[in-house]
Design a protein around this nucleic acid. Structure first.
Lengths: 343, 343
DNA sequence: TCGCGCATCCAAACCGCTTTGGTGATGAGT
DNA sequence: ACTCATCACCAAAGCGGTTTGGATGCGCGA
């Protein structure tokens, strides 16, 4: 059932039917009612491709999600981020187009998205320091919002980010207040912007209290359970082991805990763990009282906000960059306690 | 840069240019070369919407992924599944359209996808027992492939699935061989077809050895760390506790392990754990030697196969249902050992 | 020399919608 | 009575491709 058929069925012109359905004023309310009713009973839905071609709007948002070529890992936060964004798109009638690209030819992906014209805007995932994608997208003239920020990129751009530096600074302060001086940082991959900011927050907090920064207590990599475990185990074997761990994700935290317990220590009593918690649906940090003390910020909410910002930008044809900085809350759980003298 | 411009630039008609680029024979090889070259230098890429409208093919595959309305959880396997499928789509020039729907109005989503005509086929996720979506899709006349199967659905349909029943039957056998008689099953949500098949494999194996099935040792739910932990803890407090746990995911297994260790027991020595392992990128089961003994099957590979099957079906206009049954391998790790008399 | 097949190219229709630029009827204002 | 909005509708021209149904020119056999 297409527009022409529906129109002839109603004894109207395609023009009028189109206008009736799209809420234009120059159509009698009575006929509008007739049209909408007929549309429903005949289960008419305008053909997306035709509509897109005619209006020039793709009614779709592209998500280019990079897949690490070394690790072949899709960051698990994408699932939640995307479900948040998807909610918003659905309400506005937008589709979500996912492109999964090996992180070494993302540029081609963006160019193609642009020249094929099948998206109205793009969400940029996993920004790195001085990410060249910003400049690229600026050049392409396609609206976009970055989930995260790019240290080192001067030009203004739209972003939604958690205040990672502040969160990790506060977290480090919290551990320092508990008497910890040997605080390890198990971070995300060190080219990622969020990891850099967390490192900055951590080292700023240490510096503010004149606690020396020990490179042996800092590790970065893919945020998996194994990473947390291996890092914790190795560090606990140091001559002067840490009394607290900060980790970048719950998975790493779980791994660290395993490493701690393997060493015969108890989390929260002998050793503290403080992690960032993205509030992933399938990775809850306890049910009521959190297991891990954490800096918490919902990545799904970030997805919603990115989506809203982008749609807003598209709707208003307003290219002026905007931004939103989300503060993580510091939630105290069972995994932290006062520092103990050398186990 | 569009076709008309490119054509006039070359002093040719749009027809010829189109044919040259699409490999039709009625064009001189010399001019074809000229055309392709010009297309490259001018960075010409045919407008997707126009192409779609003209050909009637959307060049996109829809993934409808349900979000549990009670739990608001996106199953973490989607990330990996989708990255597998995405690989295949990318190679064939297809887009992937993600629709995230609360699981109570999936039907509307499918109908809309169909009538808006923006996909050529659909991947059905998370099939339930007697899933009514099969009948719906059959009626819609849209090619589809189910990731998993639907017990209780008579009509033939295309699917790719792991042999869950066989996997869990073998796993249970393995534990029985080690002398375990009190084997607990921490399963996925019990309306999910895969969970049912695993339960069936488990109970068949027990029945074959005349080991009674104890409902107290069976629990089902969202496969999270918390689920594994809570279930293990509760069961270990039973008067006659289990000596082995089977879990449906690594997260559940990690939770179960935590429950075990909280109870002062050691995994692999006092209590065994055997889990299913989907080989998710960010949730590796150890690096070389697996931590958990597991039934292993790559969900990313399943994604690739689903995608290939669907594209093949679309390309050949062949609606005859096909299917692919993947066998999980049983990999022995450190988490299982002979049954111990009552800790 | 004529007719025919073949190799190349093109004009125009079409895909299904939106949107521009109308038309005819009605009613108010002068 | 005439002009002029206003209302309600429509025909036709896009959007940017593909595809149908020719056109043109050339070589070749009869």
């Amino acid at each position: 059932m297409n527009l022409k058929e529906l129109a002839s069925h109603l004894g109207l012109s395609p023009t009028t039917v189109s206008r009736a359905l799209n809420g234009y004023p120059e159509v009698n309310e009575a006929t509008r009612k007739r049209v909408t009713e007929a549309a429903r009973t005949h289960n008419y839905r305008p053909n997306t491709q035709a509509k897109r071609l005619a209006t020039g709007r793709a009614m779709a948002i592209g998500h280019v999600i990079p897949i690490s070529t070394q690790h072949e890992i899709v960051n698990p936060v994408f699932a939640d981020f995307i479900s948040g964004a998807g909610e918003v798109y659905a309400r506005s009638g937008y589709d979500m187009i996912l492109t999964i690209v090996p992180d070494d030819d993302e540029e081609r992906a963006y160019r193609e998205l642009r020249s094929k014209g099948n998206v109205d805007g793009i969400i940029v995932h996993a920004p790195k320091e001085g990410d060249k994608r910003i400049a690229l997208l600026q050049g392409l003239g396609l609206p976009y919002v970055v989930h995260g920020r790019c240290s080192g990129v001067e030009a203004p751009y739209s972003w939604v980010d958690v205040n990672n530096a502040r969160a990790f600074e506060r977290a480090t302060d919290f551990l320092l207040d508990l008497g910890h001086r040997r605080i390890a940082l198990i971070n995300g991959i060190d080219t990622m912007d969020f990891a850099l900011r967390r490192l900055r927050g951590y080292s700023d907090a240490l510096a503010a209290r004149d606690v020396p920064l020990d490179p042996q207590l800092i590790v970065s990599g893919e945020m998996t359970e194994a990473q947390g475990h291996d890092a914790a185990r190795a560090m606990l074997r140091l001559p002067d082991p840490p009394t607290a761990f900060m980790t970048a994700s719950l998975l790493s935290a779980m791994g660290a805990r395993r490493g701690i317990e393997e060493a015969g220590l108890r989390m929260g009593r002998d050793i503290s763990i403080l992690t960032h918690d993205d509030e992933l649906g399938y990775l809850r940090n306890g049910t009521d009282e959190p297991i891990f003390t954490c800096t918490r910020s919902s990545v799904r909410e970030a997805g919603r906000r990115c989506a809203r910002m982008l749609l807003d930008q598209i709707a208003h044809g307003d290219a002026s960059p905007r931004s939103e900085l989300l503060e993580a809350v510091l939630v105290v759980g069972q995994s932290t306690g006062p520092a103990r003298r050398q186990g």
